[in-house]
Design a protein around this nucleic acid. Sequence first.
DNA 1: GGGTACATGTAATCAGTTACATGATTTA
DNA 2: TAAATCATGTAACTGATTACATGTACCC
Lengths: 178, 178
Amino acid sequence: MSMPHPGLTPTSYIVLGLLRFAGEATPYELKATHAGSVGFFWAVPHSQLYAEPDRLVARGLATVRQEERGRRRKHYRITDEGVAALDAWLAGADLPRGELREPALLKVFFGADPTDVAVRQVEAHRERLATLTAIRDRVRGLPNATGPLHTLDAGIAMQEAWIAFWERLAAGSGPVEG
Amino acid sequence: MSMPHPGLTPTSYIVLGLLRFAGEATPYELKATHAGSVGFFWAVPHSQLYAEPDRLVARGLATVRQEERGRRRKHYRITDEGVAALDAWLAGADLPRGELREPALLKVFFGADPTDVAVRQVEAHRERLATLTAIRDRVRGLPNATGPLHTLDAGIAMQEAWIAFWERLAAGSGPVEG
DNA sequence: GGGTACATGTAATCAGTTACATGATTTA
DNA sequence: TAAATCATGTAACTGATTACATGTACCC
């Protein structure tokens, strides 16, 4: 009857999720995995990938095993409690509102030259789109990757929406209307 | 020859921008203004709207005037230095990558039932869309609101893109494409 | 064998979050 | 006049950001 685990942040669930996927991982491996997957839409600084696993251990949601000699790296592993916490979160009803956090928009809001910003945004989003598309083509076909695939689709859809938006803005035309 | 001001966060610029717009404002007024404008795409907790102005004062980018009696409220005003910092940022070339920060996506990524999530996201985004559309219709016509208007258009475009995405996902069909 | 890049962390600072607390107004 | 809500802040805690620091492997 897994109790809810208060105080777990998105970062916590990201690490739990990566640990479950990896079986066992060092922070550096988490960093690499994250960078090639979730990192595309949810940044986590690498220092957090060292700090968070220890927090999880303190809560009993993971365990550590430290190498005795050499680099004395720490290998983390998710516990059954950890899996339960992750599953409870996944199945849970709460879905906090997402946020945009787009600095370019902030600038436009406060009066930056829209055309100038827009032109550069179009280019940036085009690059992004190319990257994501390439990745999707590689991921497609892999089994058990439907979650990540959906996410990639979302990312691609968003890039396309942004490109359309900034292009309209760069062209100086108003909204299409309604 | 305004030097760059290191250590200013997006929150700093939001407060500077709101102060310039308002002429003079108490944190509570900042809170209200923020909630009805930038707040739609960039959240700032109210405690930061009390803390940040003092940081700006410490840097010489704003001034305070505290009431002598009664509530002893603090009224803030942007300084010329503050205006310069804001303008430098607005004109500056750096545009950090935006982020999605969408908890729903995170859940789907890590294996939550996509249909379940999608159905609820569609509803949430529809509400959001209605809100933004209503606001845009009010803002349209106001003079000197082109920055905010563009922002609203962006928000609306994003909501529509999300709705389309989640609807496809809820319908269980793959991406359109090939 | 010296440099460069990758790997692996720790420490200090600071912003952000949450919670609490009280004063003023409105309304029932 | 009691209750509820709005206004106005402060305090404590903790996560996130930045910077630093060192170890190991590779390559020229």
